[in-house]
């Protein structure tokens, strides 16, 4: 870990302006991913701005009947919130399927969105990785890539986004609220928040440098049956091979988003029209354009079968 200076910010705007002022600054909230990466010098901030004191840890109703989740709401608290459990069950389910009790007690809503990939080559600084070191190459293509992406990949990167929470946020059409150093705020639809790798897999979100997430808002509840199905090798405390976040309405229509498939939570709205036609048709539409490797082609049938299981669960 490289040496860094540290400050505790007391307001969101102050934090954002400190980030703009200090070269190599990063925000730290839960720290569960950032410190992990700093120990390996994959992240090397020169200055850390601790945003835990900003008071962004509230969950409050919005005017249009939704919920505004503060950026610093811990995963545990978001999952345990009575309103979330009642009206946004898929989010609660996704949260508790991730990481461990200890990590969920620390990890925050904003931090979870900003989690970086678990690609083992990204994590090993002796190996090429375009995400970590632009232009160095991708060791995962042609390497150990069983767990990696099949949708929206590029010749530069086949990493996946590891979050469960973000998949549920995507299916719920959440909005990410931010503030910058000038105090300007903006609302970014979750669909536009994470990027596909393209030629610049090092750029993962649409956040500008120094821009701070202040909240994630959930639109008003849409009802339906909420399911989060996570498929993994170990029964717990493991990243998803794939996951399906589903909100299914009577009659079989609804929404689906997927984890473990892409560099971002994967959702194909057009494919949702196929839901009443069954898992096969739906999967075919979701997976159109898939590019698999010899090791991760199993994700294709896995997605279809898991969609089928989710549909069955929704009927039950």
């Amino acid at each position: 870990m490289k040496a860094f200076t540290y400050e505790r910010a007391t307001s969101a705007k102050e934090a954002a302006s400190a980030a703009a002022r200090m070269p190599g600054a990063k925000f730290i909230a839960g720290g569960t991913n950032l410190l992990d990466l700093m120990k390996l010098q994959i992240e090397t901030p020169q200055h850390l701005i601790d945003v835990n004191g900003l008071g962004l840890d509230k969950i409050a109703p919005t005017a249009d009947g939704g919920l505004r989740v503060g950026a610093l709401v811990r995963n545990t608290d978001l999952a345990a919130d009575a309103r979330v459990r009642k009206d946004y069950g898929v989010l609660s389910r996704a949260l508790v399927s991730g990481a461990s009790g200890q990590l969920r007690n620390k990890a925050t809503t904003a931090g979870n969105l900003l989690q970086r990939t678990r690609c083992p080559y990204f994590y090993d600084t002796t190996k090429p990785c375009n995400k970590r070191q632009p232009g160095s190459g991708c060791a995962a293509i042609g390497g150990f890539n069983r767990n990696l992406a099949i949708m929206g990949t590029s010749e530069a990167c086949i990493a996946t986004h590891p979050s469960d929470m973000a998949v549920a946020m995507r299916v719920l059409d959440a909005t990410v609220e931010t503030v910058n150093a000038a105090g300007a705020t903006r609302a970014i639809p979750i669909a536009d928040f994470h990027r596909l790798p393209g030629a610049t897999p090092n750029i993962e979100t649409s956040l500008a440098p120094g821009e701070l997430i202040t909240a994630v808002t959930l639109p008003k509840p849409i009802g339906g049956t909420h399911i989060y199905q996570k498929v993994r090798d170990r029964a717990s405390y493991a990243f998803a091979l794939i996951s399906v976040a589903a909100v299914i309405q009577p009659g079989g229509r609804g929404r689906l988003a997927f984890g473990g498939l892409a560099h971002k939570p994967w959702r194909v709205e057009a494919a949702e029209a196929q839901m009443p036609n069954g898992a096969k048709a739906t999967a075919a539409a979701v997976l159109a354009g898939a590019r698999t490797t010899s090791q991760n082609a199993f994700k294709l049938p896995l997605v279809e079968r898991t969609i089928g299981a989710v549909f069955e669960d929704a009927k039950a």
């Binding site: 170990r234 029964a235 493991a238």
Partner: peptide
């Protein structure tokens, strides 16, 4: 997992080399 190009075990931590957890 051996990466036969580089000659090492790729999944070299407890997040990627799975040993059983309580739930297993």
């Amino acid at each position: 997992i051996v990466d036969t190009r580089f000659g090492y075990f790729v999944n070299h931590d407890l997040a990627e080399y799975h040993v059983p957890a309580h739930a297993d």
